[in-house]
């Protein structure tokens, strides 16, 4: 019995380290690789090294490393929340885990219908990955979602899902869905291609614009405090008076609110597109015919 308790506590510590260590690692990598400079610069993801592959070289960038760190962190969080789970909830973490699962299932069932209830884990994964990626900016790390390649990858995945569910009744029904009014077929095809592009750009643009505006505001405030306090001698002349507090307000909006909202919108659009593209009436009619 005593042995079991110790084992439980040890595993808990391991999971907690799994949550915290990736973020610490990210901060250390960031400190080690950022070249020293005085002025504030707006730059894309830093390329650490390039893998030599036969078809095309694969550059390993900051956004890839950070998204892997986020993934490890989320796995740690999941293991921590579900550790020591019982049939009857009696710990706080089990209540939190059940709350998350129940709410995601409610969201998916409400928006996609009963047929798609198996989508809940996928939607929860997208929500968690996207939200935590955007929240990386709170630690001063490069948010993976402000790289268009990351969001484009997710959007292409969603596009494949949409096409798969549209194809459920065979290619003929799929082709027919474009030619609803026959004259509008070209427009329908364009809007089909525009779906992943707009999803990728929406998420990326929101997060990136937030970080660009934050950097611009920080440099502006630096200039302002240099103008007002610059004449004072010594330490007082370099005191960052206006940089205290004001950027934090913007950070709450851009990093926390906007990041989480974009995650929600990405997941919501995924659900709406996948459920909307699925020809439910036709599919269930055919299934009924087959069964009879």
């Amino acid at each position: 019995m005593e042995n079991n308790k110790e084992r439980f506590k040890m595993l808990d510590t391991v999971y907690m380290l799994m949550i915290i260590l990736p973020i610490v690692c990210g901060i250390i990598i960031k400190i080690l690789t950022t070249p020293q400079s005085d002025d504030i610069a707006i730059s894309g993801a830093r390329i650490f090294f390039t893998l030599k592959l036969p078809i095309q070289d694969l550059p390993i960038t900051e956004s890839q490393i950070n998204s892997w760190l986020v993934m490890i962190s989320i796995i740690g969080l999941c293991l921590f929340l579900t550790h020591g789970i019982k049939e009857k909830a009696d710990t706080k973490r089990q209540h939190v885990a059940e709350w998350i699962v129940e709410n995601t299932e409610k969201l998916v069932n409400g928006n996609m219908g009963e047929y798609f209830s198996g989508f809940a884990p996928f939607i929860a994964a997208i929500l968690a990955l996207s939200a935590f990626s955007s929240l990386m900016a709170l630690f001063g790390l490069y948010a993976p979602t402000s790289d268009v390649n990351v969001t484009a990858g997710w959007a292409i995945l969603v596009f494949f899902l949409i096409t798969y569910y549209k194809m459920k009744c065979g290619p003929v029904v799929y082709a027919k869905s474009f030619a609803d009014p026959v004259l509008l077929a070209p427009l329908n095809i364009i809007s089909e291609i525009a779906t992943p592009i707009s999803m990728a750009f929406r998420h990326y643009g929101n997060v990136l614009s937030g970080s660009v505006i934050s950097v611009l505001l920080a440099s502006g405030l630096q200039g302002l405090s240099a103008i007002i306090l610059g004449k004072l001698p010594g330490f007082l002349g370099e005191f960052p008076l206006f940089q205290i507090g004001i950027p934090a307000v913007l950070s709450i909006y851009f990093d926390v609110f906007s990041g989480v909202l974009q995650a929600y919108i990405f997941a919501m659009l995924t659900m709406l597109y996948v459920a909307g593209g699925f020809p439910a009436d036709e599919y269930f009619r055919r299934k009924a015919v087959k069964n009879n």
Binding site: S198, R202, Y204, G205, L208, V212, I265
Partner: peptide
């Protein structure tokens, strides 16, 4: 909020083009 996010898309296209033009 959903509607706002969808309406925002055109503005974000412009933002992407502006960022491409600058950087």
């Amino acid at each position: 909020l959903m509607g706002c996010a969808v309406a925002e898309t055109t503005g974000l296209y412009a933002l992407v083009i502006a960022i491409l033009l600058i950087f």
